[in-house]
Simulated scan of single mutants.
Amino acid sequence: MITIQQEAGTVTFEEFVTARGAALVRLARGLLRDPDTAEDVVQDVLAKALLKWGRISSADDPVAYVNRMVVNASTSFWRRAARREHATDQLPDAGYGDATGQLADRDELLAALRELPTKQRTVLVLRHFEDYSDEQIADLLDVTTGTVRSNAHRGLATLRTALSR
């Protein structure tokens, strides 16, 4: 996980977006079923973050603050039933070439991940795509570490079942 290490309040919004923009989109793509929607959610979050950048940049951890905004915006998106869309077959950009077998495996994994309940999917994406610890996830989602572990356990069990078929 990349952190922004500068004196408090001196990180500009542009520097933050340059350093963390791609990671925010990856996070949203893991949480949402449609990559285009994920990019829209991140764009909306960054627009809101720009308006509050003075407060965000002076926070203890601006990265966690904006990540929380992305998680909340993704959750809010799914709460609006009228906006629910079907899953797409597009994959997140991995930044490297895939062999055919790896591409098929990743496609199957992402399809199964998209079928998980929101909390389980969120925990697994934060843990395995963003390399957050259970404590960081608990702080981000405002739940206990036990809840994080429970959601991770249930989500992984569901994925194993879905992928073993």
Rank of each mutant, 00 (worst) to 15 (best):
Glu14Gln: 15
Glu14His: 15
Glu15Ser: 14
Glu15Leu: 13
Glu15Asp: 13
Phe16His: 11
Phe16Ala: 06
Phe16Arg: 07
Val17Trp: 15
Val17Gln: 14
Val17Tyr: 14
Val17Ile: 07
Thr18Gly: 13
Ala19Cys: 11
Arg20Met: 15
Arg20Glu: 15
Arg20Ser: 07
Gly21Leu: 05
Ala22Leu: 02
Ala22Trp: 12
Ala22Asp: 06
Ala22Gln: 13
Val25Thr: 11
Arg26Trp: 09
Leu27Arg: 05
Leu27Glu: 02
Leu27His: 07
Ala28Asp: 02
Arg29Val: 00
Arg29Gln: 11
Arg29Cys: 02
Gly30Tyr: 01
Gly30Asn: 00
Gly30Arg: 01
Leu31Gly: 02
Leu31Trp: 03
Leu31Asn: 04
Leu31Ile: 00
Leu32Asp: 03
Leu32His: 00
Leu32Arg: 00
Arg33Leu: 01
Asp36Arg: 04
Asp36Tyr: 02
Asp36Lys: 08
Ala38Asn: 01
Glu39Pro: 05
Glu39Thr: 12
Asp40Asn: 13
Val41Thr: 07
Val41Ala: 04
Val41Phe: 09
Val42Gly: 05
Gln43Tyr: 07
Gln43Gly: 02
Gln43His: 07
Gln43Met: 04
Gln43Pro: 00
Asp44Thr: 07
Asp44Val: 03
Asp44Tyr: 06
Asp44Gln: 11
Val45Arg: 10
Val45Thr: 05
Val45Ile: 03
Val45Trp: 05
Leu46Glu: 05
Leu46Ser: 05
Leu46Val: 04
Leu46Trp: 06
Ala47Gly: 11
Lys48Leu: 14
Lys48Met: 14
Lys48Ser: 14
Leu51Trp: 08
Leu51Gln: 15
Leu51Ile: 08
Leu51Gly: 09
Leu51Asp: 15
Leu51Tyr: 10
Lys52Cys: 11
Lys52His: 13
Gly54Ile: 00
Gly54Val: 00
Gly54Lys: 12
Arg55Val: 10
Arg55His: 07
Ile56Tyr: 09
Ser57Thr: 14
Ser57Ala: 09
Ala59Arg: 09
Ala59Val: 03
Ala59Gln: 09
Ala59Ile: 08
Pro62Thr: 12
Val63Thr: 13
Val63Met: 08
Val63His: 09
Val63Cys: 12
Val63Pro: 15
Val63Asn: 12
Val63Leu: 11
Val63Arg: 10
Ala64Asp: 15
Tyr65Ala: 12
Tyr65Glu: 15
Tyr65Cys: 14
Val66Ile: 02
Val66Trp: 01
Val66His: 05
Asn67Gln: 12
Asn67Ala: 05
Arg68Asp: 09
